[in-house]
């Protein structure tokens, strides 16, 4: 475990804490894409299939359980909680997220890490995570005003994978000396998708103005 990966995991955890905080304190999920959250449930479940078969460390197991648990809880809040579900921006959250699943699955069949079910699903989850933020970014462009917690959530979510890229560079030079095409290229694509959001987020933060993405 290196500092970059720990920082990445903590940033990822913080993003989820911020989202849960927003939903629980404001009893609202306005501006949050349910489709992105549903994709994350698929990402975590398909990535952590080895949760009960392979023990890496307490930290690893605990974090996997937290990520699966919180992502399911968020979808539950947005779909079933009597108050929160009424605040879901259903009309703006229109990205056809199910269209993302077949290409990622086909890509996982074509370029799996290994040709076994768990590795194909692991590759699928890596590819799907790279594009899972798209519905959320589209929704942000449509949101007239993005509240601070939602903006922070997306920023932290983008920052976590950027920290993972630093972790991969660090591990390449200090440990593995091995190229890992699947996570690296997916991670770069994933982080690149946040590029314009990062630009407008940092600009709004520096100018102390409300975050707005150009449509």
């Amino acid at each position: 475990m290196n500092i970059f990966r720990l920082a990445g995991d903590m940033t990822h955890l913080l993003s989820i804490v911020v989202l849960l905080l927003k939903i629980r304190t404001t009893k609202s999920c306005a501006g949050i894409s349910l489709k992105t959250q549903e994709l994350y449930v698929i990402v975590f479940i398909t990535r952590y299939l080895d949760l009960f078969t392979r023990y890496v460390s307490f930290y690893n197991t605990a974090m996997k359980l937290v990520f699966i648990g919180t992502s399911v809880a968020i979808v539950w809040y947005m779909r079933l909680h009597k108050v929160v579900k009424q605040t879901y921006s259903r009309d703006e959250d229109t990205f056809k997220h199910y269209l993302l699943i077949p290409p990622c699955f086909i890509l996982a069949l074509l370029i799996p890490l290994e040709f076994t079910v768990t590795e194909i699903l692991w590759s699928f989850s890596i590819y799907l995570e790279a594009v899972a933020i798209l519905p959320q970014l589209l929704l942000l462009q449509r949101s007239s005003n993005i509240d601070n917690l939602t903006g922070s959530y997306v920023f932290l979510l983008g920052a976590y994978r950027a920290l993972y890229i630093v972790n991969w560079v660090y591990r390449f030079f200090t440990e593995t000396h091995k190229i890992r095409w699947i996570p690296w290229i997916s991670g770069l694509v994933q982080t690149a998708l946040y590029a314009d959001f990062f630009y407008y987020y940092i600009k709004s933060w520096k100018n102390h103005e409300k975050l707005r993405l150009p449509a």
Binding site: D50, E114, Y164, T176
Partner: peptide, 10 residues
């Protein structure tokens, strides 16, 4: 299994 080091990451 798989490429070195990826399976201890989240």
């Amino acid at each position: 299994p798989g490429d070195g080091g990826s399976k201890d990451e989240l």
